[in-house]
Amino acid sequence: MNVAVLRSMLWIALVVAGPFAAALPALGAEIPPDQRRSGYADMSPDNKAMQDDDTSNPGMLAVLDGEALWGTKAGTANRSCADCHGDAKTSMKGVAARYPVFNAARGQPVDLSQRINICRSQHQQAKPFAHESKDMLALSAYVAMQSRGDPIAPPDDQRLKPFIEKGHALFMQRMGQLNLSCSQCHNDNWGKNIAGNIMPQAHPTGYPIYRLEWQGMGSLQRRLRNCMIGVRAEPYAYGAPEYVEMELYLMQRARGMTIETPAVRP
């Protein structure tokens, strides 16, 4: 029988089992690796075409801005990214595919935008970019795009383990007045219709994305905040460690899937 039928039977079995269903092994189970799909797959042909063509992909405007920033000297050190990192096509290839990484100086993982700001403040002596600012999104998009086409490859770093586990716990925990976990929607009900939209599996393959609903670019954190607001939970502040932990877990969950930054989404 197919997985959808099995899932329905499991559902029915659990409703019947009711309060006796203390252990719930099947629900919240990971999506089998060969069934993982990017949100791209559920888009309309028009939106797919928009993403596929660099001359029509609105996210490419941010990438071009980011390319300009890459070469612009900044800060009291009067240094550009290029001055240290050279050609981004070479130096930044694979970076977005493996972030977040452990930062020894901070003793905790950092995501790409935090790493950009570490470079800004420590190596350029420049003011860090504000969360979700045009410049941060542009530079992140430019850097991440250098991994486009690469498989997601989180590093096998034991120091990350406790943070990945925290991220997993966050993904599994019910939250908000609507009392829902990420897993309940994105592991258990992906592919179904949530009032006119196909429920995605929620893989971070294309961030920062150009979301048509936003009419603009946005980071993974912005998307996670939207979800938290959607279940009537208090979102964590931008830059909160919880987002890095969730991203770490999401990258593990999406291991091997292809980076498609800058993605277009409805």
């Binding site: 659990l14 309060p19 719930l24 908000g176 009537r232 939970a233």
Partner: peptide, 24 residues
């Protein structure tokens, strides 16, 4: 109360919830 794993929100509960947004 009927299915601990349900996705149906508890429309008349205010306790045992996690991180409810201030306005709710």
């Amino acid at each position: 109360r009927l299915n601990p794993a349900t996705i149906m929100p508890p429309f008349y509960r205010i306790e045992g919830l996690n991180r409810v947004a201030q306005s709710f």
